[in-house]
Write a protein that binds this DNA or RNA. Structure first.
Lengths: 128, 128
DNA sequence: CTGTATCCAAAATGATACTG
DNA sequence: CAGTATCATTTTGGATACAG
């Protein structure tokens, strides 16, 4: 007798996909790179608020995962270009779908955030 | 002159959707509930490894966000049932797509994890 | 069975100064 | 321009004991 579909075991694909969702910036870096190869500085400007440390760290991770290719041009000033690998392109697919949904459903996001705000206010009222 | 599409500003939908992706369990809880209303204990068993604290905390969050409805039955022993609200159902849509992709692309996940493992081994070789 | 409160450990992120 | 290293901080998660 098979287990119900809704059980999410420790090593099921649904949990494993969270690898690219866990990091605060990972999926956004991949998404930006889906628009084409980009230099470090461009990536930095495409992700307002990211720190230099997190940018480098995230890029190393996706590079280690084989999702992104790093190419160094030995010129002055130094130039480094990042681009998606074929594997990286596969992973961008579901991410783009998710982001497209987000763009098309900003109203739902508003609603969610309004609800959270209201519930936070209600909670703080208690403490007065 | 408009900005490039790939710029992800602080309050763009692509960043805001990460609200439901950030928590370690949030999206999985929603996914499980998409199979139908469920009691606390069922949810716990559907998510092996989740602690009681995280389960409650996650449920409170999605409840506050208006994604999940909590219904208490005043019986002994106590019974509480959770179910998706209409808003919650909307959010499950892109999540299911993501999870379906993961199930269909386990090979890509393997490849990613192999790459990461290899790069970790290579890194530790350095330190010997 | 369901839920709360604490205390604690670990992980993720950020600011900054420095190097080639 | 690109990257490293370090330190401090914040966030997150989990174990446990207790309560209705």
């Amino acid at each position: 007798m098979a287990e119900p579909d809704f059980i999410l075991r420790e090593n099921c694909p649904q949990r494993r996909i969270h690898y690219i969702l866990n990091g605060k910036w990972t999926s956004m870096v991949l998404s930006v790179l889906s628009y084409g190869p980009m230099r470090t500085g461009q990536l930095e400007r495409a992700l307002p608020g990211i720190s230099k440390k997190m940018l480098t760290q995230t890029l190393r991770e996706v590079e280690n995962g084989g999702l992104v290719h790093r190419e160094v041009f030995h010129v002055v000033p130094p130039k480094v270009e990042y681009s998606l690998t074929p594997l990286g392109i596969r992973f961008v697919e579901p991410l783009s779908a998710l982001y497209d949904w987000a763009k098309d459903n900003a109203a739902a996001l508003d609603e969610l955030e309004d609800n959270l705000r209201r519930s936070a206010e209600a909670a703080s009222k208690q403490g007065e």
